[in-house]
Write a protein that binds this DNA or RNA. Structure first.
Length: 416
DNA sequence: TGTCCACTGGAACGTACGGCTT
DNA sequence: AAGCCGTACGTTCCAGTGGACA
């Protein structure tokens, strides 16, 4: 047993050490790689360059809003433009600085302001200060630097949707109180309806210029993939069919180039692992399944305990041939499962909220229905296979026995 | 036509926590 | 040490609702 295992591993390690015969440079296909060329984005690059150029003289440039769905190259293009800008600014000794922030990753207005402070070397604590205090320190710090600051807020819609537009309102007004320094804002949004969430004053200040990144079509995706593939793969390894399929599969969805690159990378990894001589269409098809499987698995594992119990409750009702369970039934089963495993149950209101969250991430599908005299509720069914949920949740020993549990409330349940 | 069910979903509030300022 | 702040997660309260049923 031991020998067999070490032989197998030995082969894996040897294979690794002798270098990949598929990849030349795998990193080229990862998300954080910024390429030198952006096929089909030349005009956007030029336009953005024209907009931010005044920063080179230390003066204000127009605020910009960039729209586009995920994987249309907004972030990468902007980073590319900014790195060229800072490079040029260094050459010229221009009094400017760039601060690139991802609002979704930062999470809160406080953290965004504190990142802005860090960008201009003002130290603020992780927490503890009033938001207004952090903002004041930022403004004072900025004023003393006497420079133009370009603030790029990536995924700005995330912060506006969850916290309102206080942050943008303050930032767009800050120039009124600055004498020596200036700040220009570039907002990047995935959501085209993002404007609806903004105060009209903020909107007009922010969208002096607008740039829209349209999704890539299959031909454009193919060009992008070919470009990267030349760097990423060994010569002659990648079949043209595989590239075409990647482009076609992704274009049929939302034209997300990031996803296309993922697909190509995973296809390459699959081919590599089985020692294939080339990356074929079949590898791409398997990669597509693998990516989806992994994504859902990760989401499931990272779910909070109560959400897992809710999901489990839906599984149990599903097992009892209740195809569309309703909130009340799920809550009953949920309470029993909590009792069974010594977890303090949450209120129905909270559970109803958890069900909504599970709906948003696609693990459940819900629909509000009215059953007339029998009230208004939600019909809920699983968004992914029961066996898959079982496989993942059973890795937690608390949940494994619960899958076999037969709830008391079910015995009285009228089957559909 | 009015009643009434079983919720939905918004809003306000409570509690715990980490970490700052004074 | 006390007071405050933002954040996360939860509870409590309650008006609103679509449609079957009497």
């Amino acid at each position: 047993m031991h020998n067999r295992r070490s032989d197998a591993l030995d082969e894996v390690f040897e294979h690794f050490l002798h270098g990949s015969n598929i990849f030349r440079e795998r990193e080229v296909l990862t998300h954080d790689y910024i390429p030198e060329k952006f096929p089909h984005r030349e005009s956007e690059i030029r336009y953005l360059g024209e907009i931010v150029a005044p920063a080179l003289r230390g003066s204000l440039h127009s605020n910009v809003l960039i729209y586009g769905k995920t994987g249309t190259g907004k972030t990468a293009v902007m980073q590319f433009v900014l790195s060229s800008l800072t490079h040029k600014a260094k050459e010229l000794g221009s009094p400017m600085k760039v601060c690139f922030l991802n609002c979704r990753l930062s999470g809160t207005e406080y953290r965004i302001f504190s990142s802005l402070c860090n960008a201009i070397s003002v130290r603020v604590p992780f927490t503890g200060l009033a938001l207004a205090e952090v903002f004041d320190r930022f403004r004072e710090g900025l004023e003393s630097t006497k420079m133009a600051l370009v603030v790029v807020l990536d995924e700005v819609d995330a912060i506006v949707k969850s916290r309102g537009d206080f942050l943008l309102y303050e930032l767009t007004r800050i120039n009124e109180n600055l004498g020596q320094s200036k700040i220009s804002i570039v907002g990047i949004s995935n959501d085209l309806r993002f404007k609806e969430f903004l105060d009209p004053r903020v909107l007009s200040a922010l969208s002096e210029e607008e740039v829209i990144f349209n999704p890539y079509n299959a031909d454009q995706l193919r060009d992008i993939l070919m470009d990267r593939a030349r760097l990423a793969f060994q010569e002659g390894i990648l079949s043209e069919g595989a590239v075409k399929l990647c482009a076609a599969l992704v274009a049929a969805e939302h034209g997300d180039a990031r996803r296309a690159l993922d697909l190509l990378r995973v296809a390459g990894e699959l081919a590599e692992r089985e020692g294939a001589q080339s990356v074929l269409e079949e590898h791409v098809r398997r990669a597509e399944k693998r990516i989806e499987h992994d994504r859902v698995g990760e989401v499931l594992k990272s779910l909070p305990t109560h959400s897992k119990v809710v999901l489990l409750s839906v599984c149990i009702l599903n097992r009892a041939n209740v195809r569309h369970s309703i909130t009340g039934d799920i809550y009953n089963v949920y309470c029993e499962l909590c009792e069974e495993s010594d977890i303090a149950p949450l209120t129905q209101r909270r559970v109803s909220g958890l069900i909504n969250e599970l709906d948003v991430i696609g693990l459940l599908n819900t629909r509000v229905v009215s059953l007339g005299r029998y009230g208004r509720t939600k019909k809920i069914h699983l968004g992914i296979p029961k066996t898959f949920i079982r496989n993942i949740l059973c890795q937690d020993e608390r949940f494994a026995p619960l899958f076999e549990y037969v709830p008391r409330c079910l015995t009285a349940y009228p089957t559909e």
